[in-house]
Design a protein around this nucleic acid. Structure first.
Lengths: 239, 239
DNA sequence: CCAAAAGTGTTATCGATACACCCATGT
DNA sequence: ACATGGGTGTATCGATAACACTTTTGG
């Protein structure tokens, strides 16, 4: 039988992107305090089962929340403070009786999805929240979210994961806006495009935006084949 | 009471450096197969206790093995394959009865120590092995070691952790040899030193090598203060 | 005086940055 | 015709990479 391991869970920071900016998928949990229902936001997560790896567990949670599979999702850090459940947006003592009476260590995963790929029926209790407007979450989930964003940025500097967040075909402006959303800054358009031009795995297509009242943008696509075969490990220890 | 959590352990990849090159600390475990004692090399590790974080657990193991505290040690990856104990240098079935009968997920830590800082009496069963000459280890420990080395290299490109491996005062040649050992390559001396010269937190001292039959090298030291205050996050997404 | 490692400079190329105007389209 | 965002080039500066000789010491 496939029981859950008692002391280990995973939590998923699922980043999504659309025209409004960078978002994160949060899940509304309901607790009873006395006879009052109270709602608290948390990251989606679960305990892991006897027969699955952490990776499989995270993919399962991701699928349950978004209905998509085969998506970029990666572990980034373990959170093991023995008191990690005692902090956060909701008073621990009030809900203690509704929580398992044992210590739980959690492994943080982060994921990138293209929001428009996701058909509506995610869980009714899940919602996309603008990444920079997330309020207080339950437990140590703010800490997990912050660490995920930091890691996402680091990763993005060296790996082409941005394309996970975009539709198959995208304009360079979309790509630039995405980078700007994630790094919370702005880039110069010409320099950005020069950089792009050096990436041989970004393929300019013969398709263009339609129905816009300005010069239509060319679409590009990301060619993973070319990327895998031409990427060079960059060697530089600038410290 | 401070019991151990049953399903979670940590394993430490402790890198050390001396004139002979980059080494890793391994631990000789003894198992009984029938009436024969057999020896197998593994990474030092332990289960974690109820009241400690993973970090504390790793620091405890590091202290037990090396006698040093306050050393750079950092988690890098969780290994959670349900069958992870079944692979490795020693036949799982033969020793199964000597292992806990449950699944164990392990968190890998890597650490850097200066071998010459370590007084002799490490555990009698521990030894330093040249990093590139490690044979087959028990369980999935080769995988953990490889991942640690990869992570060490990545980290070294952007953070000044090399100094953890060197004595307080060191020559530029020592530093270069260290980088060459870790990256398993060679660098041009002049270009290397030019790069060093830009790092304002590497302080040239008025002390020199003695007793060598060639021009004595100047010693340098690493100033963490200056590093912390002058480091800039480098922004570049070369993909 | 010899051996051994320390230390040092120049040139060519490449990548990063800063900056302003014309183009194609829908209304 | 105008408003909107798409698209392009140049000049300066700093970083990288390739390359060989002189210096200091101990033996």
């Amino acid at each position: 039988m496939n029981t859950a391991l008692p002391n280990i869970s995973i939590d998923c920071v699922i980043f999504g992107y659309d025209a409004e900016g960078l978002k994160v998928l949060l899940f509304e949990e309901t607790y009873l305090i006395g006879s009052r229902k109270i709602h608290a936001l948390k990251l989606p997560g679960d305990h892991i089962l006897q027969n699955e790896t952490l990776q499989q567990s995270a993919e399962r949670v991701l699928y349950e929340q978004t209905g998509v599979r085969n998506i970029f999702i990666r572990q980034f850090q373990v959170f093991s403070d023995p008191d990690r459940l005692k902090h956060g947006s909701i008073d621990f003592e009030s809900i203690k009786s509704q929580l398992p009476d044992r210590r739980v260590i959690t492994v943080g995963f982060y994921s990138l999805v293209n929001i428009s790929d996701i058909k509506d029926p995610i869980s009714k209790r899940a919602c996309w929240i603008n990444c920079y407007e997330v309020g207080r979450l339950i437990f140590d989930h703010n800490e997990i979210l912050d660490a995920a964003l930091e890691r996402l940025r680091k990763e993005l500097l060296h790996h082409p994961i941005a394309f996970e967040l975009l539709p198959e075909k995208f304009s360079l402006t979309q790509l630039q806006k995405l980078y700007e959303a994630i790094f919370n800054t702005e880039f110069d358009k010409r320099n950005f495009r020069r950089k792009i031009a050096k990436m041989k795995y970004l393929i300019p297509l013969d398709e263009f935006e339609t129905g816009v009242s300005h010069k239509p943008a060319r679409y590009y696509s990301f060619d993973r084949e070319i990327y895998e075969t031409t990427r060079r490990e960059n060697f530089d220890f600038r410290l």
